[in-house]
């Protein structure tokens, strides 16, 4: 029997060690909210996650967290785990508009209020409150500023737009905002390249490099997300197109999100404008929506984050509300 005892003993020790580390789930009377993110792979999601955590701590709400690692099946399991643990509300970033519907359904069936943070799903037989930047309006405002700058140069520009994952409502809104701003300005802007990135750095880089090979005279570039800037900048440098505002060969750059890279590029004089999503507003609104729902108050289906455009002329005034700048100064 010594053999039986030894490894099993070892396993038991191992398990208790594991448990000692996590402290276990002692229940208390506080409200509990489960936060389920699809990924923490980009700064934007980390900033959003931290903003929600800070908001919950401020209000003394217990938090349960789960990251799905870009897997909608795992996200479904995680939401079911929240149901098991009887959370009072769920804040979730869905994988995409469609594959996360079963997860939302699981929360609906358990009668737990659910808020989708920043990215919303199709409303196919499911109920949720969406908190989302007005992607269309914000992208349009950003590109409007870029067009204004283009007009000041007094010449025509060829333009490139880097698109996101077309299964994501946000990406579609930003694309539509871009074209709405171009609409009516075809006299000076001609869109020659639409680069699909599927929210993937490698794809973005390859696409931008190819576009410059086909059209070396592109001088106007909008990306649907700032997190793609590192690969876009490396492609620009490869084509000798990365120059400061005012220098010869400058490409007018615009983005969306307002991350730390964008903030740095703006300070260094490369980036003209970016549409900033106000994550602090979105975090606060998400938590408030759940509390309101718990109290039985009426909450609109969609809460719009108006956001704002930060550009060369207003950057000092607005930097305290730009999450990318906040992160940078925190370091």
């Amino acid at each position: 029997m010594t053999f039986l005892r030894n490894p099993l003993l070892a396993l038991t020790c191992f398990l208790s060690l594991l448990l000692g580390g996590c402290g276990g789930g002692s229940s208390d009377d506080r409200i509990t909210i489960g936060v389920a993110f699809e990924t923490l792979q980009t700064e934007y999601w980390v900033a959003g996650f931290d903003a929600i955590k800070a908001e919950l701590e401020k209000r003394d709400i217990r938090i349960l967290e789960a990251i799905a690692d870009s897997d909608s099946n795992r996200q479904l399991q995680q939401i079911k785990t929240f149901v098991t643990r009887r959370v009072d509300g769920i804040i979730m970033v869905p994988k995409d508009a469609k594959t996360s519907i079963p997860a939302i359904k699981a929360a609906n069936e358990a009668g737990i209020p659910i808020v989708l943070f920043n990215r919303i799903a199709d409303r196919e037989g499911v109920e949720f409150v969406g908190v989302q930047a007005d992607n269309f309006a914000l992208a349009k405002a950003t590109v409007d500023y870029m067009v204004e700058k283009a007009r000041e140069t007094g010449r025509k520009h060829k333009a490139m737009v880097v698109l996101g994952d077309m299964g994501d409502h946000n990406a579609i809104g930003r694309r539509d905002g871009f074209f709405a701003a171009i609409d009516g300005n075809e006299d000076i802007i001609e869109v020659v390249a639409r680069v699909p990135s599927e929210w993937n750095q490698e794809k973005a880089q390859a696409g931008v490099v190819n576009a410059f090979q086909a059209n070396p005279d592109i001088s106007f570039l909008f990306t649907s997300s700032d997190f793609l800037f590192p690969s876009i900048v490396s492609a620009l440098k490869a084509a000798d197109k990365y120059h400061k505002i005012g220098e010869p060969g400058h490409v007018i750059l615009g983005g969306f999100d307002g991350d730390a890279t964008a903030w740095q590029m703006m300070q260094d004089g490369y980036l003209s404008a970016t549409g900033v999503q106000d994550v602090y507003f979105e975090a606060e609104a998400s938590v408030q929506a759940i509390l309101d729902l718990l109290e039985g108050k009426e909450v609109p289906e969609l809460i719009r984050d108006p956001g704002f455009v930060i550009h060369q002329s207003n950057m000092e005034a607005m930097k305290d509300r730009m999450w990318g700048a906040v992160i940078s100064s925190g370091n």
């Binding site: 870009s70 897997d71 099946n73 795992r74 479904l76 995409d96 469609k98 594959t99 519907i101 079963p102």
Partner: peptide, 17 residues
Amino acid sequence: LITSRMESGSPVHWQRN
């Protein structure tokens, strides 16, 4: 089973598993 459970056909279902 997976397509049915996730109520959608997708090329990324289960890719990490």
